[in-house]
Design a protein around this nucleic acid. Structure first.
Lengths: 139, 139
DNA sequence: TTTCGTTTGATGTATATACACTATAATTCC
DNA sequence: GGAATTATAGTGTATATACATCAAACGAAA
């Protein structure tokens, strides 16, 4: 079954790779009960410090509605809070103290996942990959 | 909002890229009523010529059950058929004549999508990307 | 200041994919 | 040849993500 050449499709290969790499990250973060998307939201929120749902979505390149659903469990767990006044449309998302603390612990696990990827493809290729992905994502 | 440095996460960036590139392909294939995953199944089935669902799944690196559901509409449309005897467990998947014809038309559109990606990141980077993705996917 | 278009968050629904499990065909082993 | 094991296809359900749409808040324009 493996003596055939597979179709060289950027799309299919990117999807497979995204799924395979996602497994690595989710496995690493498993013990903290966070998905890689949630981790990414927390991490980026820490950088921005304070923003609306829409801003956060634009910033990380996810659909607004996806972010709405992803942050819900983060609210429930008390990792982020909304600093806006009542009856206001805009949310003002912020990391809570607990969120900061959890995030720091997650960062260690996340770095393990990063290193796992670098080990698999080599640091040089990893840098190259990052550069090319940036070109696709921001270009 | 854009004066912050985003987190350099291989996983998140791969996922974003997979989604962005998927849009390119699905857009190109839209007029044929096939998704990129369906196209890929047809294309690989053409190469293998004849195989079971499990073999096809292993070959393209998708979960078996995912393949089961993806090929269903291809059956309905008469693009693939099952050459196995009745009451047999193993399916013997094959492209129908109609499937071959449709696939050839799709290939043209698929190449457009491939070129679109190469135009975006440059042919050299595209080759590099393919190589790295293979390392992730098969390594 | 009232109206109207826009922004923002939210919900409903759809697709791609996976995992857990089930039912049955096929194979192995006594 | 019949029982136990394995392989195969299929279903149920879950997650990540998006699009279409809605309602309420906000801002601009008359």
């Amino acid at each position: 079954m493996n003596n055939f050449t597979k179709i060289n499709c950027y799309c299919i290969k990117l999807r497979r790779a995204a799924n395979i790499v996602s497994d690595i990250y989710d496995h690493c973060l498993d013990s903290m009960g966070l998905s890689i998307t949630q981790y990414s939201l927390l991490g980026n929120l820490q950088k921005i410090e304070s923003c609306s749902v829409t801003d956060l979505a634009n910033y990380i390149g996810l659909e607004r509605t996806t972010v709405v659903r992803t942050i819900r469990p983060l609210f429930s767990k008390g990792l982020i809070s909304d600093a806006s006044a009542p009856n206001q449309r805009n949310k003002i998302l912020q990391l809570t103290e607990k969120g900061e603390k959890i995030l720091e612990q997650c960062k260690i696990l996340w770095r393990d996942a990063q290193e796992e990827v670098e080990k698999r493809i080599g640091k040089e290729n990893a840098d190259m990959l990052m550069k090319i992905l940036d070109q696709i994502n921001d270009g």
